[in-house]
Amino acid sequence: MNKARRNPGTTIAAHGALVLYTLIALFPVFVILINSFKTRKAIFREPMALPNTESFSMIGYETVLKQGDFFLYFQNSMIVTVVSLFLVLLFGAMAAFALAEYRFRGNTLMGLYLALGIMIPIRIGTVAILEMMVATGLVNTLTALILVYTAQGLPLAVFILSAFMKGVSDDLKNAGRIDGLSEYMIFFRLVLPLVRPALATVAVFNMIPIWNDLWFPLILAPSEETKTLTLGSQVFIGQFVTDWNAVLSALSMAILPVMILYVFFSRQLIRGITSGAVK
């Protein structure tokens, strides 16, 4: 698109198209957010207007905070996401290191075996997963969700991390070996710090699907104490479907934490995707 450098018309058209699509992308979020701060009357009379002193109201948020246990849901989502990410990164990095560093019989086969899960969604096995969780008494615990998300995240993590670990210099590792470091120390002290960017990429890739998942919380942990934020908002909205203030506020409260995380991590996320980690 070298013409764009010279031709102002092309540049304007490009900006026009991008602005238009940006508006389409942000419009629903914007509408939900502004209306969550308005009175019921104002929501219906002028849905597109910003809240002003007359139409401002927090009644929806009051209902949400009174009726739904959103702090508990949030805490559950936090625990599940953080622990799953930690396990995916730790186990994934260990396995990736073994595959990238050592030559042993069955190395390629093991790599292929672990890569199977990249394309085959774990949801297909739901029936048997539920049976297993019932049999082991893990149903309605956060542990069940953590196990499932860890298994789901591992294949891609091993795939991405082993590609990165092949790039870590052999001289460095051999120097460590001569200095008497054990293989474990080489992994934790030398290699792990060097692949930190790749770890961040894997973390960001896994974070969004885990946080947003509805299927497994619905099936494995639907009890009140273990609801995640996604399932909690789904159930809450289903119950309060005619209370527009409450629904809009609940939606805004579900949007908020993700948006905050996104503002912090968007650079990492976009760099991760564009660095070709998924190619």
């Binding site: 994934g92 396995a95 042993f104 899960g117 096995g125 739901t126 029936v127 997963i129 591992l154």
Partner: peptide, 27 residues
């Protein structure tokens, strides 16, 4: 026998096999 290779691989392979591959075939 290089134990460290097994130790590095074990957690990932165990979780992946038990929670993903086995239920898949069981289903």
């Amino acid at each position: 026998f290089r134990w460290h290779i097994a130790v590095f691989l074990a957690p990932a392979v165990l979780v992946y096999t038990a929670v993903m591959i086995y239920p898949l075939f069981n289903t």
